[in-house]
Design a protein around this nucleic acid. Structure first.
Lengths: 342, 342
DNA sequence: CACCTCGGTACACACGTGTGCAACCAAACG
DNA sequence: CGTTTGGTTGCACACGTGTGTACCGAGGTG
């Protein structure tokens, strides 16, 4: 059986309140008895009950992280940033994966509510309406990651990467390499805000270079590698095919690289390719992939810091001194856009 | 403020015990009042306090998962299996990453103990001595993943992949392809049990084919890609270099592929390469990597099922009907061992 | 009418922890 | 010696939930 402060109190011959105070270094207890109690606690293998403590303290030092799936390397890296920062501040992370199923999404949020988490971080490209309603009901600070939706309540904010600027950087890079016909492979899903923004940056760079934003050069992928693979034939179909392509994300680009190789096209000579995200695979494919690196770890770090500030503000019922944060992506030039020999 | 069963009891004009029983569908409460209370609970946005419930029930329906880092794609997939199975059984997962630092390891275990988790799953290649001591003190079922250490207490078991058989499969595949001089790249760390086992399987396949187990054909890597990269020159040094190589893991093999390409060696014609793990990258490198696929998701699934059985057994103070489980890896043949044209 | 049965509900306690308040004791002071 | 002061400690309650036991009223039976 596990030892409680009452058990310690019994063998120490004091009341449980004295033990409680001694263990929390209260200055009112006699230094000798405090030492004696602490020694006893160590000997008896005492470990404070987080549940009971949370009950009386009104805080659990726990934050919930909602993800679609943890096996997405991008998300995993973000969670790593959250976990690391949480640990430094004495917080614990509870994981809740939704698997992108609405049913599990609400179950996950309900679970976090039951666990009385002090805050919630949500990493999902889009937050369903039903889901969102449950999120606000949780009455606790919420930070949305890479979500472009409006930051609802007074304690709901968001951290995201600058998609538009990222798209701009990627496309400008291709323009600077001398390309005039540059295609874009979208996620093929209406209303996907990241997709919209990246495409807007793409158009901005084209316009700035005096090039037209030709809708015929925008192709629909699906955000996965098979989407990139399927798009290649369409890309090559026109009489004057594009010489470069910017993809919504790395997975799409990787699929495109694969099918390009199968079709005998050489990258970047026949077709230059740029992705977005900088997932681990990007540096291992051949040719290695030029991409926009999202600061994944910092994304999670920043989100956790923000949640922490919000929690503190809520405890003092103060209006929090935070605002939505936008981090900048970074262009990482690799072989798929400049060749190996250069 | 959050609504408790007492609040519901007040507005319903009954005692809190009646509310408690009504919400847990106890047959002793009047069906009408039960319906009324349930409706009230929904209206008031009631959510049961998991901490308080855990306090009185003696179980938290929570299991802790200790990992080195969640951004390792292999581990992430395993955790996904754990999480998915846990959710099905009504359990919640608390994540604790140790970052391979001993200090954080014990802090992580202590944290899980405080949270009164019902069971623990540890995914780490080796469990330190100090760390292990803390693990046993937690007095709760523990399942070790891919750990070859002795399964200590009565409620400590392990789930792992058959490293020896995997090594055997990989090497036999190369033998069948006609190779006579086959090298092994180890993890270069004394006492690493997975490494030892995989090498043993490698030797077994060689012996079975009437080939010698030449120690000069065993090279030391470090389990990471740079280790594989550095090993290539040594591999090519002998007057009669090996025509095939089996690597401890995929990362090592990927590094080896990269440096082989840089050195102008063609794979698999000049050198056939086989890895171990089947991480996502394996299918994207060029040439794609032949490897032994570990059943990652099933590994996590099995571990969670085992923890569940152990928990149930412990509750009834029965001797659990489980035993250490060994899952089989699967040979996945790709381009790095048979070429693209065949 | 007295007794028993039984469905439904309330009371009281338990779980482990933190904390305001009172109580106690010793020492110092008037 | 009486009183105050200050340092320690215990008592009692609170947090939210589950459950054994007692209670109460209605209906049935002898």
């Amino acid at each position: 059986m596990k030892a409680s402060i009452k058990d310690i109190a019994r063998v120490a011959g004091v009341s449980h309140s004295t033990v409680s105070r001694a263990l929390s270094d209260s200055p009112v207890v006699n230094p000798e008895t405090r030492a004696r109690i602490k020694r006893l606690a160590r000997e008896m293998g005492y470990s404070p009950d987080a549940g009971a403590r949370g009950l009386v303290m009104g805080r659990t030092l726990t934050i919930g992280v909602v993800v679609t799936t943890i096996s997405d390397p991008f998300i995993a890296e973000v969670v790593q940033g959250v976990e690391s920062t949480a640990f430094k501040n004495g917080y614990t992370v509870i994981l809740a994966s939704s698997g992108a199923e609405p049913e599990r999404e609400v179950a996950a949020v309900e679970m976090l509510r039951s666990k009385r988490v002090d805050g919630v971080i949500v990493t999902a490209s889009r937050v369903g309406a039903l889901y969102k309603e449950h999120l606000t009901r949780i009455e606790v600070p919420v930070v949305l990651l890479n979500n472009h939706g409006e930051s609802g309540g007074p304690y709901t904010f968001s951290v995201r990467v600058d998609d538009r600027h990222g798209g701009y950087l990627a496309t400008r890079h291709l323009v600077e390499r001398g390309h005039r016909r540059i295609a874009y492979v979208s996620v093929g899903e209406a209303g996907h805000s990241s997709d919209r923004e990246r495409q807007a940056g793409y158009c901005q760079a084209l316009t700035e270079a005096g090039l037209p934003c030709d809708p015929a050069l925008v192709f629909a992928g699906n955000g996965r590698w098979d989407g990139g693979e399927r798009v290649l034939p369409l890309l090559c179909a026109p009489p004057e095919p594009p010489t470069a392509v910017f993809c919504f994300n790395d997975m799409t680009a990787v699929g495109l690289l694969r099918s390009a190789r199968a079709a005998g096209l050489s990258v970047p000579e026949d077709l230059a390719v740029v992705g977005f995200d900088d997932i681990p695979i990007a540096s291992y494919v051949v040719p290695s992939l030029t991409t926009i690196a999202q600061p994944k770890f910092e994304l999670g770090e920043k989100a956790m810091q923000m949640v922490w500030i919000l929690i503190e503000a809520q405890r003092e019922t103060a209006t929090p001194q935070v605002h939505d944060t936008i981090l900048q992506g970074r262009l990482v030039v690799r072989e798929s856009s400049v060749g190996r020999s250069e």
